[in-house]
Each structure stands twice: as C-alpha cells, then as structure tokens.
Write a protein that binds this DNA or RNA. Structure first.
Length: 254
DNA sequence: GCTCATGTTCCCCT
DNA sequence: CAGGGGAACATGAG
C-alpha cells in the first residue's frame, strides 16, 4: 500500500523501534529485490552498526547507520513488520540488539539498496524529483509544465516524488479536476486548487500512515464498481490514465 | 481459467 | 525529444 503517507508511517515506526539499535544479524535476504548489492555486502556493512534516524524521499525509506545507508522501496505490497515472527514473505530481516525488523513484501516488487555513505545515496534517489511535501506552490507550476495527462504527471516520480495511484486520484477529486486533462492546460486557480488538494490529502493521511478509506473520501468508495461520489452522489467513472486504473467523478471533475 | 492489484521500467510507436 | 500503450516483473485474491 506504499505511497508517501504509508512510507512515512514506516519511517516513523523504524525511527521508533530501530534508532539507536545495533544490528546483530542480517538474514532472509531476497536476491531478487537486491539492487546493485548482495546479501554478503549488506551483512558486512550493517553488522555491528547502529541505526540513526531514518529519512524518506518520495516512496524510498532511507536508514543510515553511521556510514552505510540502507534504502528500501516497498513496491505495491511491501511493509515493515516488528512482530519477530518469521513469515514466508520476509525479504530482509534485521535482528537488532532489541527487537527484529522484517521487510515483508509479497509481490517482490520494489527494491533493497545499500549506499556506502550518505554521499552515495544520490545514486539511489538521484532520479527522483523533490518530495511532494517539499514542493511549493510555485514549484508546482514547473511540475505541470508538460503536455502529458495530468494524472500521469502527478505520478511521475522524476517530476516530484511520493504520489501514487490513490493519492493522485484523491487529490484530483478534491480539486475537482479531470485526471485526463493535459497538465499544462490548468489555469491558475485550478493549479491552486490542485495544490491545496494534494497538501490536504497528504496532511490528513500522514498521521495515519495511509490514505484513510473513509466513506467521505474517494478512497473509501473507489473499490466499489458501482461507487458514487461522496460529495454529489454521481456514479463514479473508471478509466485508464497513465497506465493505471483511475476513478473520478464525471460531474464534478472537469 | 480469468481479471485485477496502492509500483517501476523498458520497448515500440506516433 | 515527448508522450501513450503495452508488457514484464512476481504473487496473490476473488
């Protein structure tokens, strides 16, 4: 479920459970998820190291350990678990001097990176645009300076990082803008509405670590094929935009 | 068996 | 080069 709010939730849990904790063992490393590193390299780099406060850039979680930095991308089904119980979908398990953290990921999309130091983190996040929480209203104009479909631009991580299918649809629904519009076609007021929509969705989702499936939100009704707009009760429509299923209100989103 | 899934990347067209 | 469409990746749920 990992979009910006979810990864921020993982970041907080990692901060709470792992900051100041020392790695005692690394196991259950899934080679298919490794990106430019190896199980041996991760073991060598992290064993005996103590984690510092984790960071996040878009959907990437960054876990520095006084030198090496472990980076995780959760794909569509990744999560962090602290139950200490072995699970078939564990793709990386770190035993700490107090507790165990498991990177669990059923579908094995996403990735595991290891940077040798903070300076090398750019190799991992270098292609990402600014984190959406750091995008100013003014910078939004730069992000939208494209001919592509608006929703495709919002989900393009190289333009700005962190929005996914859910947060993009939710933000566009809040702003009452048609996801299929060309990014460049938005007027000033529409851009401001979109900016407020994105901020609002992220701000409200952040403390929960997820986009809340409230019935008053699009997210709460989007999985219902016969779902209706929580605001105007119009029958919601489904389309494919930017290669992904898109739910919107044809009456309000213009 | 079939369809779809909250992500990313690559390839082929236009 | 920019953008769209589709497939691939890997695994499950309905």
């Amino acid at each position: 479920v990992p979009e910006l709010p979810d990864v921020e939730g993982f970041r907080r849990s990692f901060e709470h459970h792992a900051t100041g904790r020392t790695v005692r063992a690394v196991r259950s490393v899934d080679a298919i998820l490794l990106r430019g590193t190896s199980a041996q390299a991760i073991g060598r780099a992290l064993h005996g190291r103590t984690f510092q406060r984790p960071g996040r850039h878009g959907k990437v979680l960054l876990c520095p350990a006084h030198g090496p930095v472990l980076a995780l991308h959760f794909g569509m089904t990744g999560s962090l678990e602290w139950d200490g119980q072995p699970h078939a979908h564990d793709r990386l398990v770190l035993e700490l001097d107090r507790g165990v953290v498991a990177f669990r990921n059923m579908r094995r999309m996403g990735g595991i990176w290891l940077a040798r130091d903070a300076g090398e983190v750019g190799r991992i996040t270098g292609r990402l645009g600014p984190d959406w929480l750091d995008v100013s209203r003014r910078e939004l104009d730069d992000v939208l300076d494209r001919r592509a479909a608006l929703k495709a631009v919002l989900m393009d991580q190289t333009a700005a990082a962190g929005l996914g299918n859910l947060t993009a649809d939710e933000s566009l629904w809040r702003a009452r803008i048609d996801p299929r519009r060309t990014a460049r076609s938005l007027g000033r007021d529409e851009r401001s509405a979109l900016y407020r929509g994105i901020r609002r969705v992220l701000r409200d989702s952040l403390p929960l670590g997820r986009v809340p499936p409230r019935p008053t939100w699009l997210t709460g009704v989007r999985d219902d094929r016969a779902g209706r707009c929580p605001r105007c009760d119009e029958r919601l429509r489904r389309a494919t935009v930017g290669g992904r299923t898109t739910v919107y209100c044809p009456k309000e989103q213009r």
